[in-house]
Design a protein around this nucleic acid. Structure first.
Lengths: 113, 113
DNA sequence: GTTCATAAGTAGACAGGCTACCTGTCAAGT
DNA sequence: ACTTGACAGGTAGCCTGTCTACTTATGAAC
């Protein structure tokens, strides 16, 4: 599963990952991969531009910091980003409920887990 | 909510609507709107090209028929379309479960319905 | 000094949904 | 007859956002 299916939901995911604490880009990619059991394995060419977009929108703030003698650009949620995340969460719930209404019908087993 | 969020899931929705029986394009749009309580209000410029795409892929077959003295192009699922729909269903479940893992955490209430 | 994991980044391709149109039928109102 | 509006099908080109492929750079292992 790649980010193509995410289209439009990637930002929400990035914000959600950063909700647990500031991370640099590469670590965000690893967090997505780890927490999704390998299902979300995003390319840097997908994530870095998305982070820039979020920064331009004021949802995240970045700062260069030295970790292990290396420069890393760490991102963290802004207050606006937290509000945006809340919006995206409710948006996601409505979206998934709506799509599920079509795709979960026609099957006899309910998606209980 | 528009189809922008659907990106990549629209085809699955169209197949799901056609699963209940053959419909013409305009009726598909109305079915999506009605069954989603108005949430999915798609433009013809979104749906018609998508139907052509599905036909090229062999997932639906179209035929001109006369209804109420008017020509209407009705679409119906092919066997390949039924298989594709089953694939899309499981794909959707995996996708939504994966995204939900990120977006449903951080809230205290579990999504039980 | 080459290779690999880590880390950040960009350019251009590409897909797919959106906006804004056009054509046409039929019924109702004037 | 003419206009308006709901119904119905359709296309061109734009825009957004992800993907592919690439570059640069550090530090450790070999």
């Amino acid at each position: 599963m790649n980010a193509q299916a995410l289209h439009g939901h990637l930002d929400a995911l990035l914000l959600a990952v950063l909700e647990r604490g500031a991370l640099h880009g590469y670590a965000i990619i690893e967090a997505l991969r780890t927490r999704s059991d390998g299902r979300l394995d995003l390319a840097t060419g997908t994530v870095y531009p998305a982070l820039r977009r979020l920064e331009r929108a004021g949802h995240v703030a970045s700062a260069w910091s030295i970790v292990n003698g290396r420069e890393r650009r760490t991102y963290e949620l802004t207050d606006a980003g937290r509000r945006a995340l809340a919006d995206q969460r409710s948006g996601w719930r409505e979206f998934s409920a709506t799509v599920a209404r079509f795709l979960d019908s026609g099957t006899s087993s309910a998606p209980a887990g």
